[in-house]
């Protein structure tokens, strides 16, 4: 049986990657995904609780065998210290989006109502637009985006997925 990349059996996997905060390490990770032909859906990076250690959340489309390779290839990068697959863990997964939507006086009230239903926030209002901030699961962000689309979305930015396992276990803290 071949282990060639089998995209028929793909599913979304969420990896938490801890790495030393050195120059070039982010491009080294993204470069590896590109050159090995792995399919990234989103990638976010920021500081972790430990000084000089960055924490990356990567969402990849991969089969079990490809995922195993992804994890090993990540470990092979000199500055990567820990890789955890949290796909099947009980995890808190969030994304933040900023949405600037076309809004004139007649539509403001309706938009405000929708924003409230989603527990999002209006953070800026101009004479012809409103900017909305939403934090939540990707599905929730998707839904709000779709509902606002008919009003005319002028600008949209999403952070991609960040994740943390619930309860006591830190992603970097297990064998």
């Amino acid at each position: 049986m071949t282990l060639a990349k089998d995209y028929n059996n793909n599913s979304r996997r969420t990896l938490v990657v801890l790495m030393e905060d050195k120059p070039g390490v982010l491009s080294n990770v993204s470069n590896m995904f590109r050159r090995r032909n792995y399919n990234i859906e989103s990638l976010t990076v920021g500081h972790s609780e430990t000084p000089n250690i960055s924490r990356m959340t990567v969402v990849v489309h991969a089969s079990d065998t490809v995922l195993e390779q992804v994890i090993k290839q990540l470990y092979k990068l000199i500055h990567v210290t820990k890789v955890t697959d949290i796909t099947d863990d009980d995890a808190v997964i969030r994304e933040l989006a900023l949405i600037r939507v076309h809004a004139i006086s007649t539509s403001r009230a309706e938009i405000k109502q929708l924003v409230d239903i989603f527990r999002a926030q209006i953070i800026d209002v101009a004479h012809d637009s409103m900017t909305i901030e939403i934090t939540g699961t990707e599905d929730k962000v998707d839904s709000l985006v779709e509902i606002l689309r008919p009003f005319g979305i002028k600008e949209l930015t999403r952070t991609g997925r960040v994740a943390m396992v619930r309860g006591g276990l830190a992603a970097g803290g297990r064998g």
Partner: peptide, 24 residues
Amino acid sequence: AHTFAPQAKIIHIDIDPAEIAKRV
């Protein structure tokens, strides 16, 4: 890879975990 040693079980000894099961 799928045509390789069809009757055999395979033991793979290597220093690099990323080489294990990469191709076969």
